[in-house]
Computed example of a mutant assay.
Amino acid sequence: MNAPRPFSQGLLAWYDAHARPLPWRVPPAGIRAGERPDPYRVWLSEIMLQQTTVAAVKSYFERFVNRWPRVEDLAGAPVEAVMGEWAGLGYYARARNLHACAKAVTERHGGRFPRTAEALRALPGIGEYTSAAIASIAFGEAAAVVDGNVERVVTRRFAIETPVLKARPLIRAQVAALTPADRPGDFAQGMMDLGATICTPRSPACILCPVREGCAAGAAGTAERYPVKAPKAAKPARRGAAFVAVRPADGAVWLARRPDEGMLGGMCGPPTSAWSARADGATDAAAAPFPAAWRPAGSVAHGFTHFDLTLKVWRADLDETPPGEGWWSSPNAITQEALPTLMRKAIATGLGTGAAPSAPRGRRRGP
C-alpha cells in the first residue's frame, strides 16, 4: 500500500510546470512566494465544481466573487439572490447549502473557515471530498482528496478491478498513502490536473504521463478499462405538466417559487403538476393550479441524475392575476429570474418562441 516516493515528486514537478491557470487557484510560483489560497474561494469553487465542469464554473465563480467577495457578504445576501446567480448551473441543493454554509461560517466561526477536514464536515453542504479539498489546498492538511479524476488515475495505476463505487475505500487508502506531508494541496490539484489533461477517460496520453512508471494499466495497455463501472440501471421516467400563463397586455409570464425542499427547490418557474411515474392525470390540464382556457403547447424533456422527466406544456392567456402566491414577470425582467434550465425550456415552449429566456450575460445555459 505504501507508495514509492518518486510518485509525489514526479507529479509535483509536472504540476509546477503545467498547472492549469484557474481563477480560484494560487499557482505553484505564488505558493513558493508565500501567497496563501483564500479558503473562501477554494470552498466556493469546490462546491460549484461538484458534478460540473471547470469550463462551466469559471464564469459563475467570477460573478459570485465579484458580487460577494467575502463569505460574510454571501451570508448577508438574500437567498433568492444567491439562487438567481446560480440559475443554469444545476444541482440547486448546492446553492441552498452554499448560502447556509456561508451563514454558519459567519455566525459560528466569525467568518473564518475551520482548518481541518473533520471540522469542515460539520458545515452544511460539505462532505468528505469537499472537506479534504479545502483542508488540503487552503490549510495544508495531508488529507486524501478523491474526485472523479483522482479515481481514474488511481484505479489505472493499481489496476483496481472492483467496480469504482465499491472500490472507493481502497482508492481513498491508496490516495492517502500517495499524499505527501509537504505540499499536499499542490499534490491534490496536480492529481486533478493529471486526470483532466493526461489521464483522460478516453485516449489517455500515457506517453506524456509524468508518473507512468509503475502504472499497471499503462504498462498493460488497458488504461481505458479503468475505472471499472457496474452496469447502469435504466433511469426511471416521470411525467408532469407545466402551466405557462401569459398576460396579453405586456407578454408577462406568471411565475411561482418552488418549495425549498425537493427538486429545483427554491427556484422559480411556471406552476407545474406533481411529477409522477404514472400518467394518471399528472399531465392533464385538470392538474393546473387555477382554472383557465389551457391549450396544449408542446412538451419538454429533461434528464436529472436519477430520473428522466417529460413535461407537457399548457398555455393560457390571462388578463387577471391568478389566485395563489406568484408574480407576473415581464419579458425584460424574466431574464433575471432564478429560472432553472427546465423552466426556461417550458416557458419557451409555452410562448412558442423556440428559444428559452436567456440567463443574464456571462451565465452558461445548460443543465
Rank of each mutant, 00 (worst) to 15 (best):
P248T: 08
F290W: 14
E107M: 00
R183Q: 15
S8L: 13
A117L: 06
R258N: 14
K58N: 05
P227R: 08
N149P: 05
P78V: 02
C215V: 09
A119T: 03
W275T: 05
P331W: 09
G303R: 06
Q50V: 00
I207T: 14
P360F: 04
L98I: 06
H306W: 12
A196H: 08
R344P: 11
W254T: 01
V246K: 01
R96G: 07
P236V: 07
T52L: 01
E224T: 10
G262W: 06
P163R: 05
G251R: 10
R212A: 14
Y129P: 12
R32I: 04
A19N: 12
W314D: 01
Y226A: 01
W86V: 08
K58G: 00
A188I: 03
P259H: 10
L170N: 02
L98T: 07
C215W: 11
G34W: 09
G110W: 00
A3E: 11
A279R: 15
S330K: 02
A133N: 10
W24L: 03
G266S: 13
R96Q: 13
A29E: 09
C206L: 07
L44Q: 05
P357S: 07
A188N: 12
R365W: 10
A177F: 03
W14F: 10
S136F: 08
D317A: 13
F7L: 14
D319C: 07
R315E: 05
A348F: 05
A252K: 06
V105G: 01
A119W: 06
A274R: 15
A230N: 03
P78N: 04
I31M: 07
V105P: 01
P322L: 04
R225K: 11
A220R: 12
F64G: 10
A242C: 07
P6M: 15
L170Y: 14
E62G: 06
V65F: 02
G30S: 04
A230H: 04
A282D: 07
A93V: 10
M1I: 11
L264Y: 05
P201K: 01
T310A: 15
D284R: 13
Y60G: 06
T349H: 00
L351Y: 04
I137Q: 02
N66R: 15
P296S: 08
G298D: 08
Y92R: 00
E325T: 09
N66L: 13
P296G: 07
T162Q: 11
Q336C: 10
R96L: 15
A287C: 13
V65R: 05
I207N: 04
M1P: 10
A55W: 03
I31K: 03
A316L: 04
K232A: 13
L11E: 12
A132P: 07
E320Q: 14
T283E: 12
V154F: 12
D260I: 07
